[in-house]
Design a protein around this nucleic acid. Sequence first.
DNA 1: AGCACGCCGACT
DNA 2: GTCGGCGTGCTC
Length: 820
Amino acid sequence: MRYADIVLPVPLPKLFTYEVPNEYHGTLAAGQRVVVSFGKKKLLSGIIFSLHNNKPEAYETKPIISILDDKPIVTLSQLKVWEWMADYYQCTLGEVYKAALPSGLKLESETRIFYNDEFEAETEMPEKTQQILDFLAAKKYSTISEINQFSGLKSCHHIIKQLIELDAVVVNEQLKGSWRPKTEVFLSLHNNVRNENSLRDAFDSLSRAPKQLEVLMLFLQSTGGVSEAMTGKEVLKKELASKAVNSSTAINELIKKEMLVQVKRNVDRLLTSKIENVQKVKTLSPEQDSALQETLKGFDENLPVLLHGVTSSGKTEIYIHLIDQAIKKGQQALYLLPEIALTTQITNRLKAHFGEKLGIYHSKFSDDQRVEVYNNLLNNKSYRVILGVRSSVFLPFSNLGLIIIDEEHENSFKQFDPAPRYHARDVALVLGQGFKSSVLLGTATPSIESYYNVQNNKYRLVELTTRFEGMMMPEIIVVNTREAQRKKMMQSHFSPQLLEHISEALSNKQQVILFQNRRGFAPFMECMSCGWIPKCKHCDVSLTYHKHIHQLICHYCGYSSNVHATCQACESPTLNLKGFGTQKIEEEIGQIFPDASIARMDYDTTRSRKGYENIISGFEQGEYNILVGTQMVTKGLDFDRVSLVGILNADQMLNHPDFRAFEKSFQMMAQVSGRAGRKHKRGTVIIQTSDPEHPVIAKVRSNNYAAFYQEQIEEREQFNYPPFYRIIHLTIKHKNQNVTNQAANYLAGLLRSVFGSRILGPQVPPVNRIQDHHLQRIMIKYERKASPSQVKKLIRDCINQTLANERWKYVQIVNDVDPL
DNA sequence: AGCACGCCGACT
DNA sequence: GTCGGCGTGCTC
């Protein structure tokens, strides 16, 4: 095989053919990583997709520069999933590759500019050039982006080019960013002193070096005693060093005197905490046990099972039993959770059961740690279970027997940007087919699509209707805010009933959760005189005010701006903070209950690595009385002292212009209500709304999922929405608004000639400009029974025909399959 | 997506 | 006259 087709991390819809150097003939396989040169100078790592002997006719091939692995790091079954994804989600293999591997396994070159020491200037050069040269001379070498940053230039290309011509600098491409094993230094007793006599002599010889003596004693203590130390037991150097002040010189002296020896060893980054005693799997309640048996029956029929269990019904225990069984059969298990539900609570619980068999794959982990999880699984080391977020469907499983998708209804399983815009639940089902794994979808509030699959006998349904350990479903009180407003009884966002219940809970030393879904209601500034609102320079959105840094930030492109004292339009000093976010609620509730301690959980307070866990554990331990939060508070948290949950504004969710708004509202309200109540004490939920008779609220109140589903499914059928129809969104982007509009109209016309009334739009999406690109959107709704691949091919043809047109060949068209 | 090339307007 | 911004094309 003399040629290799290689997947490269570029969004181009093809593979690239490189020549295999002679010495590698017959030694390569699909899935191995190679380094190749791409374009004029770039070095990239890519994945061998296939090997063949077809010499390309149209171009000269470049050779593969080097081979990074002796054996494939992407398995054949992974490559199959990649291919399926690229096809189903209409993206390129390169985009899948980018998403699939942790960046530590993807190498890319970086241009380094080296200063030439022998250089002597013959003529004077411009000031800027001289500055950059001085900068390089001081640093020896630097990168383009560093120089740009230093010089404040948008591009330093011209200057560098000049310097190259003058021989003042040389450039060089350097591969960077590769993962390296972590090493730590261990100490053990030197062979010379591993008997009592010589050890005694050693002690004697240290009589005038008290510090070294102290350290040696500490070392012996750390090994667990002299006899242990004699066997060569090792102690972490940094741990020993931390036991005495200024001990590092003493340690190094002892090494020099050949009393201690040090060795560097590769250590696992993930085995930081010691594994506690592995817990036995708990016995299940009768309800749980029969649910487990039902689930197994479904698995026997080779059907995915939808486990519909009310909140706090103990689904996790069932999962643990299933995982345990899979491991006993020698299989692997994958437990998928949405990002925000992957808390220490659940991690600790699983760790207690599965110990070092458990691997965790999470975006808050460093990239090095993710590489280690990847390698652990690839080399079949310790992991048998992976608890992870959406991207863990990309891990190199070899014998996946069980997949659990918990909180199956969660939208965050769908990746929105960048491509691949995949839904982890749907990819997991495909993954499961490949391995013939058992698949379990768990939730208290199934998505309409999944429940429909139950009705159609594509999934088996298992229900858990009772809460764990005698917990009762909460009492739900609906408060009419319109009426309260009319009677002028609303105190800002709080109804008298809600305030009454809060103060009652507080005086009973119980905790309160206040839920505010702030979607579209983030705090922003507005001029009270002229109505001017600070907007993003590059996007069609108002800037969001962030109190902690006192800045305005664009949530779409990250643009930030200082807060000005005066209005930029009319110059009057009347800029006011507007909006109804969690921060506002936090402040106001603090004024009403000055003695309560309040925590806030939202995008801002949980961005840092520890922020999220601090808030949760603080609330758990009763440091806070009230927790104010966005949808984050609804996910998989079990608190023991929460007696009251307040939903501040249900209307906001219900009035969203989206066909899934009711579904999302029901799920959100049901989930957040599930946080109320403790063992043997019924919790209370207060829902504030201006429309207490709203059918969705009625179903939440009666906890009647089936009725809710019935209503929704009829609506979906009537208006041709999923699950009866499939949806594809095409977003057309261009810097010039006219070009965007024309291209969108042309494309929509083409599509209509093929699909007729299945085409909607083009329409301007709610946010019509992002990063200086104007947007238009076309929606394609087509019957579920139509062949998706056929439909997608026809759509591709229309897109290609549009892009072939000279006038809009620079238009970007983004494909979102099954959008949410 | 990145990156280089080259065209063209802005300032010395 | 040069500098540097941005539009255009190419990547095995």
